[in-house]
Design a protein around this nucleic acid. Structure first.
Length: 196
DNA sequence: CTTCAGATGCTCT
DNA sequence: GAGCATCTGAAGA
């Protein structure tokens, strides 16, 4: 499988958000890869989107990463205790990104390694509720893959975090409104959430 | 299945 | 000082 190049991210954010579905997200820790199939994304586009941290090209210490070149990793802390993983899209200085909202382990070994990070025990010890809600949210995904602000600003062309083309073209994409952005006025209705 | 409150700290005004 | 691109456990239907 081939690592997605910078040119993949250097495109319209809505296109990238949809095409990321079904791709494999690889997180390498101490030389060991954890692989997750991406199943849900959201698009955020600073130039016109009040839900985006960099709406109207607002530049602060936090949003600086959104102005970085496409294929840069944007991770921020939310609600004081969770992290959200994003991939920067479009041209440099055009602040936009795709939020990775959910995924699923590719193999049983990935499932166990991620379960340890998320729950402190192997997957077989989990409750039905925990198995059903394994990586179905941005905070859960980051917890399971041990992603924090320490990885903010990394490039997806490096070897600690990257995306592989699994050869799967996204089918049956469900389109809906984004979650948790009630403050964003007209942008709350933008259909920019994509689920496999 | 659903709602609900509380956790917790960084970011921006 | 207010608010946040969330999650969990408890309680009720």
């Amino acid at each position: 499988m081939k690592k997605l190049p910078t040119s993949f991210y250097d495109r319209d954010t809505l296109t990238v958000a949809q095409e990321l579905l079904g791709k494999y997200l690889v997180r390498v820790i101490d030389g060991l890869p954890l692989t997750v199939r991406i199943t849900e994304t959201e698009a955020y586009i600073g130039r016109l989107d009040k839900a985006c941290h960099a709406y109207g090209y607002k530049r602060t210490a936090r949003t600086e990463t959104l102005f970085a070149p496409p294929g840069t990793v944007y991770i921020y802390l939310i609600y004081g205790m969770y992290h959200c993983l994003n991939f920067v899209t479009e041209a440099e200085n055009e602040p936009a990104a795709v939020l990775i909202r959910a995924g699923e382990p590719v193999s049983p070994a990935d499932r166990d390694a991620i379960s340890i990070r998320r729950f402190g025990c192997p997957a077989e010890a989990l409750s039905a509720y925990q198995k059903k809600n394994f990586l179905n949210g941005p905070g859960k995904l980051c917890k399971g893959l041990s992603l924090t602000k320490a990885q903010n600003g990394l490039s997806l062309t490096e070897n600690t975090l990257y995306v592989l083309d699994a050869g799967e073209s996204p089918q049956h994409i469900q389109v809906s409104k984004r979650i948790g952005i009630d403050y964003a006025e007209e942008a709350v209705d933008f259909p920019w959430r994509f689920t496999l």
